[in-house]
Amino acid sequence: MLDIKNLNVSVEDKLILKNLNLSLGKGQVHAIMGPNGSGKSTIAHTLAGKPNYDVNSGEVSFNGEDLLSKDPYERSLDGLFLAFQYPIELPGVTNASYLKQIVNAHRKSKNETPIDAGEFLKILKEKSKQLDIPMDMHSRFVNTGFSGGEKKKNEVLQMDLLDPSLIIMDETDSGLDVDALKSTAEAINKLRNSDRTFLIITHYLRLLEYIEPDFVHVFQNGSVIETGDKSLASKIDQEGYN
């Protein structure tokens, strides 16, 4: 469902992704591990369409369509979701109102009517409870002053609300406490099905032990240098990248 071919991407004239090839099949869970600065977030940002990421060459097809020619918002409406490594703060807009608007943006693109306020609240309560997010967090401004872990939980909540078909998680597990890691893993496992694909960027084995990826890729210096099954993650955990 996602095919990355010979992708070269530079940021501020610095070549970061170097001839990257990666293919994710429908329903599969892929993990990417790699040292700091190797370009993992750059893949995530490029796929989501962040401005100022220059694709020098290469192609990405998502469900058979050319992903790179689309606007970031269209990619989201097509089913791509990126959980940010560093979620952004939006002062002045409450989380509840923001969450409702993103849900409605997706409904609108499917020609559905805006969600009923009562129904939204019910869903929000239910999903927040699963992730152990207190409801009063939703009356605060989006991510503003949230703790590191709260921001990450809010990313998982958005992922859960938007029902995406391709989920890219950029170090969502970093900064989560033991319980939060477990509930995040549970949320991921619940969303896991034969239609949904995951690309999970992580530094730690712990999350992968809960969710058991189908493939593990080792990323170094802008491209994949090794691919294996989940045992590769254990090997890295013990031996490091060198």
Partner: peptide
């Protein structure tokens, strides 16, 4: 721009 990209990544048009 970072905020606008974040919103776009959630499906909100420019």
């Amino acid at each position: 721009e970072e905020i606008l990209f974040y919103l776009a990544s959630r499906g909100i048009a420019k």
